[in-house]
Simulated scan of single mutants.
Amino acid sequence: MNLTFRKVALIGKYQRLASDAAALEKSRLALEDIGRFLVEQGCEVLLEDESYANTGLQGYEVATTEQIGMHAELALVVGGDGTMLGAGRELARYQTPLVGINGGRLGFVTDIALEDYRSALAPILHGDYEEDERPMMRARVIRGSECLFEALALNDVVVNRGSTSGMVELRVEVGGVFVSNQRADGLIVASPTGSTAYALSAGGPMLHPSLRGWVMVPIAPHTLSNRPIVLSDSEEIAIEVVGGRDISANFDMQSIATLLHGDRILVTRAEHSVRFLHPRGWSYFATLRKKLRWNEGGS
């Protein structure tokens, strides 16, 4: 069978592992083994430059994220969901499909177990796969007429208080229409992908990835009737800081601290989506059963 993906990028953990020799060696060995497998399959391998800096792995062309987006036909992400989120944000604009090999723990979007990658990856390289498109969020922090910060998020946008401060008060609008003033520890706006992350632990619902919507979830709200709500992602969500101290906004762990009263966080659907490829027969519900340990002890 002919290869569908000949030029394949290999991406490991973004954070430097120099302080953890065991983790560094594990990452290097995993990338080395997968790289060798790709070459055996007839692929040309591009090693992402941060992965090279982390592991020093030799024998492959080293490429920046931009070069991967322009030239790679597929990107393999080896690590946890955080690594996959970072790769997705960077490569979405190029429409580069991503395959996640789980070298972390939970792995909602890095769904191929490291020990099973050979049997799962070979059919994908030859064009036998399920494709799963995930929308992204575009968020901006506005102070007066100035945009202080802009970022893409695949999981969520979170506005919350510091560890030692009291509640925050936030004014929320959806599509230019006032919704409510919320007094809580914070507020999460999550995509379907992010609905199984922080939003889930804060009591929000899970959204199927095919839905074009967001979930807005208050964190420990002052009023118990303040409940999560599912919204269309075609409308802009505006969150204004009205009260509280030591407030920050986080975009998939990208942070801006010290928000002031009057600052506004604007959330819209991003122009591009992330393309995930899964082994044939992949099911979102099977992922939930496995990761959330549903039906344990049952059939």
Rank of each mutant, 00 (worst) to 15 (best):
M1C: 08
M1H: 12
T4D: 05
F5A: 08
R6Q: 14
A9C: 07
A21W: 02
L24Q: 12
K26I: 00
R28N: 05
R28Q: 10
L29G: 00
A30R: 11
E32N: 08
D33K: 10
L38Y: 14
G42R: 01
C43A: 14
E44W: 06
V45W: 04
A53Y: 00
N54Q: 06
G56L: 02
L57A: 04
Q58G: 08
G59K: 03
A63D: 04
T65P: 02
E66W: 01
E66M: 03
I68W: 12
H71N: 15
L74G: 06
L74P: 06
V77G: 08
G82I: 10
T83L: 05
M84R: 00
G86E: 13
G88H: 08
R89P: 06
E90M: 03
Y94F: 15
T96S: 05
L98W: 07
V99W: 08
V99S: 10
G100I: 12
N102C: 03
G103H: 08
G104R: 09
G107P: 03
T110D: 05
Y117W: 14
S119E: 14
P123N: 08
H126C: 14
G127C: 11
Y129R: 06
E133Y: 04
M137D: 09
V141M: 03
I142V: 15
R143D: 09
R143A: 13
E146H: 06
C147S: 05
L148N: 00
E150G: 04
E150R: 02
A151L: 02
L152K: 07
L152V: 06
A153M: 12
N155E: 13
N160C: 10
G162Q: 12
V168K: 08
E173C: 05
V174H: 03
G176L: 13
S180K: 14
Q182R: 04
I188W: 00
S195V: 12
A199D: 04
S201F: 10
G203T: 05
L207D: 01
S210M: 09
R212K: 07
W214L: 14
H222D: 01
R227E: 03
R227K: 07
I229H: 03
V230F: 11
S232H: 05
S232C: 08
D233I: 09
E235N: 07
I237D: 01
A238L: 10
V241E: 07
G244C: 12
G244M: 10
D246L: 15
N250V: 07
L260R: 15
G262T: 15
I265C: 10
I265S: 08
A270D: 13
E271Y: 09
S273Q: 13
F276D: 03
H278Y: 04
P279S: 02
R280D: 03
W282H: 11
L288H: 03
L288K: 02
R289N: 10
N295T: 04
N295Q: 06
N295W: 07
E296A: 11
G298T: 13
S299A: 10
